[in-house]
Design a binder for these strands. Structure first.
Lengths: 207, 207
DNA sequence: CGTTTTGCTGACCATTTGGTCAAACTCCTG
DNA sequence: CAGGAGTTTGACCAAATGGTCAGCAAAACG
């Protein structure tokens, strides 16, 4: 007898296929807009076969979100209390921006979830996520107290970093439409801008 | 014979009711997630009656978005080339933040539309919106050139302002969950933070 | 007051869609 | 290779949902 998870090679492969296809479809159409038929077809499986691996559409969605939450918050966890404050925060900004570039589907999946009231992650937000953010906001407050960065509100600083970086994934269509950008070239300009923005705002006492 | 629009008092009243109800439902559930039944019930009308005033669900959605686009972009239009650059931009930031507080449903409606690939406003983005943003980005470039603000990319500055302000509407659930906020009190802290952020980043030559 | 225009609704329809199930097929193992 | 465990699917179902329509009700109007 083996573990419930990935009992056989076939199960591991097909579950992975389904989740990959579902990420595509959910991130584009949202939970309600996505259909089992589309996910099945994208995964190259039949609809009843999907439901052999997952009890329901919602279970696929739940599984995706839970699997992604960790990697999504990893950069914030990595904010190092021992490092040089401004450089630590800038590194965080650039890591988040890089994630927006390489993982836009994941960003949109979360955005859609939150936008619609976070019906499936409400308890995570008010639990582990709040704890993590509170901890890092406290760290930022200590840095500010010690005069190592400017006096800024840690929570709102984190919100602004999320907003500015994820914007390039969530509002990708708008950004590209306005810039007339076909490739990812605008991301390096975004990196330059955000570096300027946060370095200027965080460097203690400009004179 | 009168105009096609608002022919009678009843039409004006009921169309307004429907749009108000639809804004509620669409902003919460998205285009796909919203149902005519829910909109009808929220408007206090029967479903067939809805379809007496609007040809289809999509027409209600289209009407809403078109009606809102203008007021949504008004603050950017108001960016005054004759004003004091840093104060003009800060005023823009605070106006957008205030709109996020007072018009969160409108913000979410747009966010949802863009997030799902802007199927209904694609031509607006690449047309009038692009023109407006290009114009204002050029203004910012001139200000930077003249040394009246720091050297920043106008397009990305505008994106960041959209992102940071609309974040408080679009990700409201997350913000409240993390801050434990029940009312709108956190908006004044957000205003303080954003003022600091952009004043620091834009003031020319810190020394 | 009669008639025409406008407003409204119950009943109905077609399609979509999440989900079920019995039967068939494949694969592994003794 | 036999047999059971694991995998796949065509056919099907019930509910939800966008939309229609004939006809009734209420204004508006002359």
């Amino acid at each position: 007898m083996s573990t419930a998870r990935s009992r056989t090679r076939i199960q591991a492969r097909n579950r992975a296929r389904i989740l990959e296809a579902a990420l595509d479809v959910f991130s584009e159409a949202g939970l309600r807009g996505a259909t089992l038929d589309r996910i099945a077809s994208a995964a190259g499986l039949s609809k009843p076969n999907l439901l052999y691996y997952f009890r329901s559409k919602e279970e696929i969605h739940r599984t995706l979100i839970n699997a992604l939450l960790d990697s999504w918050l990893e950069p914030l966890r990595a904010l190092n209390p021992e490092g040089e404050p401004v450089e630590e925060i800038l590194a965080y900004v650039l890591r988040k921006l890089e994630m927006a570039r390489t993982m836009p589907r994941e960003s949109r999946l979360f955005a859609n979830e939150i936008l619609h009231g976070a019906p499936h992650v409400g308890d995570i937000i008010e639990g582990p996520l709040k704890e993590l953010v509170d901890e890092k906001a406290a760290l930022i407050a200590r840095w500010a107290e010690a005069g190592r960065i400017a006096q800024v509100n840690g929570h709102h600083l984190i919100f602004s970093i999320w907003a500015t970086t994820q914007h390039y994934a969530d509002f990708d269509v708008q950004v590209r439409g306005i810039l007339g950008s076909r490739d990812d070239a605008h991301f390096s300009e975004a990196a330059r801008f955000l570096t300027h923005l946060y370095r200027r705002a965080l460097t203690p006492e400009p004179c």
